[in-house]
Nucleic acid binder design. Structure first.
Lengths: 160, 160
DNA sequence: CGCGATTAAGTTGTGCACAACTGAATAGTG
DNA sequence: CACTATTCAGTTGTGCACAACTTAATCGCG
């Protein structure tokens, strides 16, 4: 039987070429489709993810957004500043904890939810997948992400 | 039966939250693992993809690399400049067509292939997937990318 | 209570992705 | 053959991801 251990390094380099490239390409293809669908909303794809989180939770500290989207303040701070400049969110130092900044959608940001309502259906249609396929792919990707996030860095270096 | 047409918009927004986020997160988790594995080679993940292509083909014009990796000159030009500064590749105006620039690995760049030999196996091990799973996931992602790249932009806008 | 450790957000710097554009070379058509 | 259209690489500008760091507030231990 053909397993991870019976394939020579040389073939592996080629196989790897396929898999890492495939993920890379699929992600960018997805980004392209979202970019197009979100153009009329004036949102980028990461900004849309932030708005989805805020529509669901109403208001969150920056840290809370970061936990849900797995993004740090170095990414979120400028992104939120742009969303604020666009009039979609408000940022306010929390009175209870002055270190924390609470982010919430403005009325304009909330109104945007209605305009965004049709987006996911059009995206799903564009993938050509049915609900079961989408769920299946999502579960695989989630499991993969959890697995990869938990990898011990030492496993990845030659010196161990 | 539950299909794309029988799910209300509201649920769809939540489902969408899951799927787009999953892909996003999996990609970044993958990038993190590659980042760690490639640290000792002095390559970033996109630089590694370029080197994989060059190791396989020996020498290619910028356009050829871009076609294989689905990247344009705006991304590749500075990336290749960094690879050249690192001593891994050489760039030369093609004598036959002065518009074209031929990229090829230097001896140092070729030597790097040996150091990179163990990387894909360690990555594959980190995913916790076996060969069949990897192939299956790759095929799904490829099909998805092809489908998404071929989407008519009009399908994605409300005004149609 | 006081002070060092931790936490939150922000800043800086590097690299990638992509749109829009430039300039130079080539291809193709009348 | 001349001249327009296309092609190729590169540049510019915007935005995201992340590492490393800064600053300010809070926590918690002695």
């Amino acid at each position: 039987m053909e397993t991870l251990d019976t394939v020579p390094d040389e073939d592996f380099l080629r196989l790897d070429h396929q898999i890492c490239f495939s993920l890379h390409a699929a992600t960018r293809a997805f980004n392209g489709v979202y970019r197009e669908a979100l153009k009329e909303l004036g949102l980028t794809y990461p900004q849309y993810l932030v708005m989805l989180v805020l529509w669901e939770h109403g208001e969150l500290p920056v840290k809370g957004i970061g936990e849900r989207l797995r993004l740090d303040s170095g990414t979120l701070s400028p992104l939120l500043k742009r969303l604020e400049a666009g009039g979609y969110v408000e940022r306010r130092r929390s009175p209870e904890d002055e270190r924390s900044v609470t982010v919430r959608p403005t009325s304009e940001g909330t109104a945007l939810k209605e305009k965004a309502r049709g987006v996911p259906r059009r995206i799903a249609a564009a993938t050509g997948l049915d609900l079961a396929d989408i769920r299946d792919l999502r579960e695989r990707l989630d499991a993969l992400a959890v697995r990869l996030d938990g990898v011990d860095p030492d496993e990845l270096n030659v010196c161990r």
